[in-house]
Design a protein around this nucleic acid. Structure first.
Lengths: 141, 141
DNA sequence: CTACTTCCTATAGTGACTATAGGTTCAAGA
DNA sequence: TCTTGAACCTATAGTCACTATAGGAAGTAG
């Protein structure tokens, strides 16, 4: 039921130094240690870390993840706080989906138009060189 | 026909220190200077920098952009390399859209159901903690 | 009990910027 | 022509989220 940081790493796909880093910045609680100061984890750590991992993959910043985790950590808090956090995330997620969808369209167009001839005719590069796009800062992720 | 780094910044939407940084890492060639060592740019710099900016917005890493620029600089090689770079981005973008769409559903459900009950039933974390996702390293973006 | 893997801390490096300090150059107005 | 003030210069440090390295201790299999 108890396992090492290496095993936690294997189970979640998060690298060992990254796990220690998450502990250091307070995203993961400090686990119990053996006599010799080695960390021992349980199943809870696996799901919490898997959550962090997937949220990171989706482009959430660690601060946003901290907010989401706080929903889980304080299940008795008023729903208003949770609701606010969830709504903020929803706005962000929708923004990201919109940006990524636009990006997908463009990437598809680039690939379709590139009939794999010479670079001279390659639209991948022309598309990117096209300056007719907005200069607004694009959301990350 | 010659203009300053500030003007180049205005024309491309890339910040001045970022332009200097791109020069430093060799993405942009060192431009000619005035007597007083101030950089002077021409139209070429505008299009190269616009290209870089646009590619960054699409989530290409600087190394990928370097590769794309080298294709542009030697237009006689085959387009396959550019195509591969773009296709890799597309796969990633599609994966992200799928994950975010799932998350959006969960967040919406949470907000709907949380008609001011408790957070205890929140499934946002479970949705993201789901380990059935691939463990492949995601490229940044 | 040895050998070997895994673990520990602490520190430094990465990518892609961004900010700051402290000074110089340039363009425009008096 | 002089002066003022914005924009420029270099160099360095800071940011975020890791990732790598050094040098040593702990755990485990034979």
């Amino acid at each position: 039921m108890d396992f090492s940081i290496g095993e936690l790493s294997r189970r979640t796909g998060v690298k060992v130094p990254t796990i220690r880093y998450y502990e250091q910045i307070g995203l993961l609680p400090s686990p119990p240690r053996t006599e010799g100061q080695q960390r021992r984890y349980g199943k809870d750590a696996v799901s919490r870390l898997a959550f962090i991992r997937h949220a990171r993959e989706l482009g959430f910043e660690l601060d946003a993840i901290r907010a989401l985790l706080s929903l889980q950590d304080n299940p008795d808090q008023s729903c208003a706080a949770a609701d606010t956090i969830a709504k903020d995330r929803l706005v962000e997620v929708e923004r990201r989906i919109a940006a990524l969808t636009a990006l997908r369209t463009e990437l598809r167009r680039m690939i379709d138009e590139c009939a794999c001839g010479r670079v001279a005719e390659c639209r991948v590069i022309e598309t990117l060189a096209d300056t007719s796009h907005s200069h607004g800062r694009l959301a990350e992720g």
